[in-house]
């Protein structure tokens, strides 16, 4: 889960990281509590308010 779509070079950085983990033979799982309600125009008043945990 991510709370907002990364753009440009950041999008590729995250992609490469996920792909690396996904293709890593011994990698199994990773878990962290949700950071925020997803940040979109419609949900902009809610995202990163009391829902934020980072």
């Amino acid at each position: 889960m991510i709370d907002a779509p990364p753009r440009g070079e950041d999008a590729l950085r995250l992609w490469d990281a996920v792909q690396t983990l996904g293709e890593w033979g011994g990698f199994a799982e990773l878990k962290r509590t949700a950071r925020s309600f997803p940040d979109t125009p419609m949900s902009s008043k809610l995202a990163r308010t009391e829902t934020t945990v980072r």
Binding site: A4, P6, A11, P38
Partner: peptide, 13 residues
């Protein structure tokens, strides 16, 4: 909403 923001990342990639 989680699908949505993740999908926009995929589109950006």
């Amino acid at each position: 909403p989680f699908c949505w923001v993740t999908s926009r990342w995929v589109v950006e990639v």
